[in-house]
Structure formats: C-alpha cells, structure tokens
Amino acid sequence: MITRKKNIKLEGKHQKPILADVFYIKSQEKKPIVIFCHGYKGFKDWGAWDLVADAFANAGFLFVKFNFSHNGGTVEQPIDFPDLEAFGNNTYIKELDDLETIIDWVSGTDFGYKGMADTAEISLIGHSRGGGIVTIKAAEDPRISKLISWAGVSDYKERFPKGKAFELWNKKGVYYIENGRTKQQMPHYLGFYTSFIDNEERLTIKKAAKKIKIPHLIIHGTHDPTVSLEEGQNIHSWNPNSELFLIEGADHVFGAKHPWSHNEMPAYLKEITVKSIDFALL
C-alpha cells in the first residue's frame, strides 16, 4: 500500500512557501530518494505525475515532488496559477534555491521520513525547464548521486525574447505568455532576465553538464515540439559519459496531458518511468 503525504508546507528562502508531496511504501528498508522538479508552467500535481510517483514508490523509492515557490500556485490552490504576480517574479535562482531547500529537508534531521530514507542515494529528475535546474544543481551539490532529465532544455538564454520583442520587454518591464490551456496571460517581469544575466556563469547549462561526474541519463522524445531533440543531443555531447535515451514518436510530455483521468500512465511516460527507475537503481 502506497502512502501519499500531500501538500507538506515548507519554508522557502524567498518569502513564499514550497509545497511538497512524499510517496513511499512503509517498510523497514532504507529507501533511495528521488526528487522530481516540474517544468515551465508546470506543477507537482500536473497530469500523470502522481502515477509516476506511485511507480517509483512501488519500486522501493521514497519519491518527493514539489511546487517551486514562485510557480504561480498557492497553498490553498496548488494546481494551476492563481498567483500570477509570483509567477511573474520567478527566476532560475529562486528555483535553484527551492531545490536546495528540498535537498536540505530530505537530508536533515527534521525530515519526518528520515528513518526510511537513504540520504546517500539522492537522484534528481527534472522535466523540461526543470531538467536544466537539476543539471545545474547536480553539478554543484555533492549530495546528488544520479541525474535524470526528461525533455530537458539545454540553454536558458536562448529562450528569452529577442529583437523588438526584447526591446518592448525592456521598455515596459513585463511581457506576457498565454497559457494555452487556462488562457491566462502569464507575466514575466524584467527581473527574470536581469537575474539570469547577473548569474549567467552559474545558469549556463552547458558549463554544468560538462562538470557532471555522476551517472547521467538524458531522455528525449523524437517528436518534441517544445524542446527540440537537438537540445537533448547537445547535453549528451557536453557530457559524453551520459546516456541518451530517445523515445521514438514521443512529444514533450510523453503522451500525458492535464488533467489526466486514467488509472494508467500513457505508454511513452510508462516507458521512460521504467527506464528511469532502472537507472536510479543501478
């Protein structure tokens, strides 16, 4: 029987709480830890992520997923984006700090599941933008033992507006992206860009990937319209010791969508989950 502890409230470093979920099966055995980071316009309860967590728990892991503090969700409404002001003020540095808070939590004495957690085995999984976050964190935090990215981005700088769009952003201090599902106009304040420029050395995924010494799995769908296959291939080229696992025909979310009303994962997502479990168990 899987135990699911949902919406655990943690204090973040940036005046907003972090909500976390923990999935596991009760036993006396120490369990390796997996921490999952959602992507851009994402959240811990998106689509089939709970089914992914169940699969890892059934395989003997203690699985942790969380909402970044400024992802646009709130404690009262962790799904979707009621707090667009927080979303607009998010930065990559805040996301790295949030992930550090989670790693500190699972590694620390206050972790309520410490008796069953093997803190010497912490794997990170990141989807999309979260793939870049976990790559950077794995390069700088010796507590991480394995790194897995799902449809991970390879270059944050390339994703900023350019030309006249950037000039308009610089002038107005904000630009908006429409959420295709919720139809919200989601803001990005200029601080998102200036924070990146101030921390560009740290936030360059290429530099981080070249530093990775731990086992590193890169998973990418060949029909990803959001993050091109070339980005996964780039990351693999920067760390030749990594494993590149391609899913023929898979899109950016490996066949899932939100909401996901089925009891089974879509086939592509199930395939990458099985692959990731096997890799994390090595």
Rank of each mutant, 00 (worst) to 15 (best):
E243G: 06
E243R: 13
E243N: 11
E243L: 14
L244M: 13
L244D: 10
F245V: 13
F245T: 09
F245M: 12
F245E: 09
L246K: 11
L246Y: 05
L246G: 05
I247V: 15
G249Y: 00
G249E: 00
G249W: 00
G249D: 00
A250E: 06
A250G: 10
D251E: 08
D251I: 10
V253F: 07
G255A: 09
A256G: 04
A256P: 02
A256Y: 01
K257R: 13
H258Y: 10
H258R: 06
P259K: 08
W260I: 12
S261A: 03
H262I: 00
H262L: 02
N263G: 10
M265L: 10
P266N: 03
P266M: 06
P266L: 05
A267Y: 07
A267K: 09
A267L: 11
A267C: 03
Y268T: 06
Y268A: 13
Y268I: 03
Y268F: 14
Y268L: 02
Y268D: 13
L269N: 00
L269P: 01
K270Q: 14
K270M: 14
K270N: 14
E271S: 15
E271I: 13
E271G: 13
E271T: 15
I272Q: 07
I272E: 06
I272C: 11
I272L: 15
T273R: 00
T273P: 01
T273W: 01
V274L: 03
V274P: 00
V274F: 01
K275Y: 04
S276C: 14
S276Q: 12
S276D: 12
I277Y: 04
I277S: 04
